[in-house]
């Protein structure tokens, strides 16, 4: 589904991603962990098409197409979804109109007619139920005045509505209370199928107890320096990243 090869990216001339390799197959859940500033959100941004990042080397194949060649909206329409670490507030754009526009633009891209009002409302209701998302938030402006947790839940709710093939969740768990974490995780687990895949960026092992990953990767200084199974997350929780840094320093050529 997703094939990242030797991906390098820079912001304003500063190299941030320095050779990422990652393959994600349908049905898989990958977790990406790593210290602050290691490049996790940058990777997510590059995949979603944020224009401030310049890809300097490497390739990304998404469902047989060149992802890096597509505009952000085309990536979304092809089935990529990014749940943001910091969802933005957009006063004056109503949550519900925004969602309707998004759903219908994606449908139009696939040659489908706009959704009927009734069908849209039905879908809205069923997804609200799935994610236990507060219906009152729907009629407000997009994320305006939402609490930190409400913004995260709104992003995940959007994910449920748009039914992406590959969802990247950037620290969705930070900011969620204990109950919300359980609810959101249960919702995500229900969305999982053999045809879709998830990349979860997180600092905490707790999320991975609810949504059990097939693979755990550690991103450090712009590269994936270690990959393993869910046990790796436990080990990181216990030992932190320092032991890895030691290993890496040994591997890296002396400058």
């Amino acid at each position: 589904m997703l094939d990242i090869k030797n991906l390098h990216a820079a912001v304003e001339g500063n190299a941030i991603l320095k050779g990422i390799n990652l393959t994600v197959k349908p049905g898989e859940v990958h977790a990406i962990m790593g210290p602050n500033g290691s490049g996790k959100s940058s990777l997510a941004s590059v995949l979603a098409g944020r224009e401030s990042y310049e890809v300097t080397e490497g390739s990304v194949d998404f469902l047989g197409k060149d992802l890096l060649d597509m505009s952000p909206e085309v990536r979304a329409r092809e089935g990529l979804f990014l749940a943001f670490q910091y969802p933005v507030e957009i006063p004056g754009v109503s949550n519900i109109n925004f969602l309707k526009t998004a759903v219908n633009e994606i449908r139009a891209y696939h040659g489908q007619p706009p959704m009927q009002a009734k069908a849209f409302l039905d879908m809205l209701k069923s997804k609200q139920k799935l994610m236990e998302f507060d219906a009152n938030l729907m009629n407000r402006s997009l994320n305006e005045g939402f609490s930190g947790g409400e913004k995260k839940r709104n992003d995940i709710f959007q994910m449920a509505m748009l039914e992406p093939k590959l969802a990247i969740m950037d620290e969705t768990d930070s900011g969620l209370d204990i109950d919300a974490l359980r609810i959101v995780s249960a919702g995500v687990n229900k969305l999982r199928s053999k045809d879709n895949a998830f990349i979860m960026i997180t600092h905490y092992q707790r999320l991975l107890e609810y949504i059990v990953p097939d693979f755990v990767h550690v991103l450090y200084n712009g590269r994936i320096v270690k990959s393993g199974t869910k046990e790796l997350a436990l080990e990181l929780e216990e030992k932190g990243y320092d032991w890895l840094k030691e290993d890496i320093r040994l591997e890296e050529p002396v400058q």
């Binding site: 979603a48 944020r50 909206e73 957009i90 925004f98 526009t101 633009e105 891209y109």
Partner: peptide
Amino acid sequence: ALFYLRARGIG
């Protein structure tokens, strides 16, 4: 804000 909307499929 523009990127957020585009990332949801809006042209």
